[in-house]
C-alpha cells in the first residue's frame, strides 16, 4: 500500500508531508511531556521487531498464499497511539530509504495512511471499546480483526484519493475504489488475525507484560481532539492553498518560460511553434521514406495531415535530444569514474 513518488503531485505530497510532520511533532511533544524514558529504547526495539516479524509468515489455508504481521495495529496495542505513531513513522522512513518503498516525497502520504489510521482512529475508536478492560479470546480476536480492517480500508481509501488528486495515474475514482477496497478487506482480515494471534499469545504467556508496558494517558481527551481539529483545519487550508497554487502554477510556469525564452514552443502546443514545425514537416515529408513511395497520389497530403500539428516536431526533437542527453549524462558519469580511478 506504499504510495510512490512517481504517482503524486507536489501539492498532494507537500500537504501530506505537512500533516505527517505535524503529527510527528505532536507525538514527540507528548512523549517528552510524559517523561518516561523507558519508552525510548522500547519503541526502537519494537520498531525493529516489526521488520523482523515481517520475515516470519504463515500459510493461509486453501489459498496458497501467506500472510504476516502488518505493523500499525500491533504497535498501537503495545505502545499506545503516540509512541506507536512515531514508531510506525520511523519504520516507514527506513523502508523509504533502504528498501526504496515509496519515496521521500510520498513518505508523508505513507506515514499518514499507515500510521495515523491504525494509531489514532482504529485503535481508540474500534479496538479499545471492544476489548475494554476484560480481554477474552473472542473479544481480542474480533477487536484486532475489526480494527485492522478499519485501518486498512481508511488507508486504502486515502491512497485512492491521493492518487486521483495527483492526476498522474488516470484511474478514475470509482474503478480505483472498486479495485483497492476489496483487496484491502482481505489483507485487513489477515493482518487482524496475525495481530490477534501475537497479542493473544503474549496475553496468555505473560499477562503482566501488556499491563506493565509504559503507555500513553488515555486518548480521546480534549487536548487530542483540539489537535486533531487543528490538524484538519490546517490540512484543508494548506491543501486548498497548495492546490490553488498548483492549478494556477502551470500557466504561470508557461508564462515565465515565455518571458524567459521569448518563445512559447518549449511546452509543445503553442502558436509560435507552427511555422518552424511546418518547415520540419515539409522536410521530413520530402525525405525518401517509404510513406512517400506509396503509389497513391493523395497520400502525401494525408501523411502531412496525419502529423499532429501540435506535437510532431517536438516529438522528433525530444527523441533525438533525449537520447543525446542521456548519453551525455552517462558519459559524464563514466568520465568522472575514470578520472577518479587514475588519481
Amino acid at each position: 500500500m506504499h504510495m510512490a513518488d512517481a504517482l503524486i503531485s507536489p501539492a498532494v505530497g507537500g500537504t501530506m508531508w505537512a500533516a505527517s510532520a505535524g503529527l510527528i511533532g505532536y507525538c514527540s511533544k507528548k512523549l517528552k511531556d510524559d517523561l518516561d524514558d523507558r519508552k525510548i529504547p522500547l519503541m526502537g526495539v519494537v520498531g525493529a521487531f516489526i521488520f523482523a516479524a515481517q520475515m516470519i509468515n504463515f500459510t493461509i489455508p486453501g489459498t496458497g498464499s501467506s500472510g504476516h504481521l502488518g505493523g500499525g495495529m500491533i504497535l498501537a496495542i503495545l505502545l499506545g497511539p503516540s509512541a506507536a505513531f512515531l514508531t510506525m513513522a520511523s519504520v516507514l522512513f527506513v523502508q523509504a530509504l533502504f528498501f526504496a518503498d515509496g519515496g521521500l516525497l510520498a513518505l508523508g502520504c505513507n506515514i499518514f495512511n499507515m500510521g495515523f489510521y491504525p494509531c489514532f482512529v482504529a485503535y481508540p475508536l474500534v479496538y479499545k471499546p471492544i476489548v475494554a478492560n476484560r480481554p477474552s479470546d473472542g473479544r481480542l480476536m474480533v477487536a484486532a480483526i475489526l480494527a485492522a480492517i478499519v485501518a486498512l480500508q481508511l488507508g486504502a481509501f486515502s491512497v485512492v484519493i491521493q492518487t486521483v488528486l495527483s492526476g498522474i495515474s488516470m484511474l478514475p475514482l470509482g474503478t480505483f475504489i472498486l479495485f483497492m477496497q476489496p483487496i484491502h478487506l482481505a489483507i485487513g482480515f489477515v493482518e487482524g488475525l496475525a495481530t490477534a494471534a501475537v497479542v493473544f499469545f503474549v496475553w496468555k504467556a505473560r499477562p503482566e507484560m501488556i499491563h506493565s508496558l509504559p503507555r500513553d494517558a488515555a486518548v480521546g481527551n480534549r487536548s487530542f481532539r483540539t489537535v486533531l481539529i487543528g490538524l484538519l483545519v490546517a490540512t484543508v487550508a494548506i491543501g486548498g492553498v497548495l492546490s490553488w497554487f498548483a492549478s494556477t502554477r502551470p500557466d504561470g510556469l508557461e508564462w515565465s518560460i515565455f518571458k524567459a525564452a521569448g518563445t512559447e514552443e518549449l511546452e509543445g502546443p503553442g502558436k509560435g511553434i507552427h511555422t518552424s514545425l511546418e518547415k520540419v514537416q515539409g522536410k521530413t515529408a520530402l525525405l525518401p521514406g517509404y510513406n512517400f513511395k506509396a503509389p497513391s497520389a493523395n497520400l502525401p497530403v494525408e501523411t502531412s495531415d496525419a502529423w499532429p500539428v501540435a506535437d510532431g516536431g517536438t516529438t522528433v526533437a525530444g527523441l533525438v535530444g533525449g537520447a543525446i542527453t542521456l548519453i551525455l549524462a552517462l558519459s559524464i558519469g563514466f568520465a568522472l569514474k575514470r578520472r577518479k580511478r587514475k588519481t
Binding site: 510556469l253 515565465s256 518560460i257 524567459a260 525564452a261 518549449l266 511546452e267 517536438t314 522528433v316 526533437a317 525530444g318 527523441l319 533525438v320 535530444g321 533525449g322 537520447a323 543525446i324 542527453t325
Partner: peptide, 9 residues
C-alpha cells in the same frame, strides 16, 4: 524551465 533534449534535438 528549458527542455534541454528538445533544444539539442
Amino acid at each position: 524551465f528549458y527542455n534541454l533534449p528538445v533544444l539539442i534535438g
